[in-house]
Amino acid sequence: MRTATAVAAPIEAHGHNHWSPYVDNGGTTLAIAGEDYVLVASDTRQSDGYAINSRYEPKAFVLSNNAVLGTSGCVADAKRLCEVLEQRAQLYQHKHDRQISTPALARLLSNTMYNRRMLPYYVFPVLAGLDSEGRGAAYAYDAIGSMERVTNSCFGSAETLIQPFLDNQVARNNQRGADPERLLTRQEALKIAIDAFTSATERDIYTGDYLEIFIIDAAGVHKETRELKHD
């Protein structure tokens, strides 16, 4: 750690006088849980302000226990959080000779994030996998580790565009004659995820380029990549 007295720096400062360790790199992630599967979809654009850093920089990661961690927010924090979680999942495997369950990993993620309460990971993760009964499980978090098991969730720069759409099409809240308990079939979930992203890409400048969709079921993780608008 270096110590120095403040130098009268010839800095071309334009107004801002405090350095923030956080950046929002944009991008969107959603998850939809079904009876025997769970779906995670994220775009692959990474931005910094109005600049596109990369058109293909994935922000959803397959972990060794076949859970998928979808992220949004600050990529530096997101990548580190994912590494920490994967290390812990592997340590669990070495210690107990079996993979960590998704519900256990979900709680571990909550604790990992709360451990950084004083300098939070600026990440809004969604963790998806199968629970012990083989049902689709999705967990949504805030940046300090508050967590909730959900049937659908969307975080990131297009969450305000996509979440209301999921509330309507997946949760079917407040709709006459609709059954809010009914879970979506795979085909329905896939169509809704794709429509959500193509629509969000129209209006959100931080979402676009490619869409990565992960479908997790008893057979494993199936990944599919689709194109979104590149503008």
């Binding site: 950046v23 850093n53 293909y56 920089e57 990529v75 530096a76």
Partner: peptide, 25 residues
């Protein structure tokens, strides 16, 4: 690849820093 003071990392076919991001990219 690229890395900056925030620890932001990415890989791409073309990478530039600072003003180059605005003009060269």
């Amino acid at each position: 690849g690229y890395v900056d003071l925030y620890g932001t990392t990415y890989t791409a076919d073309a990478v530039a820093t600072g003003f180059g991001k605005q003009i060269a990219i």
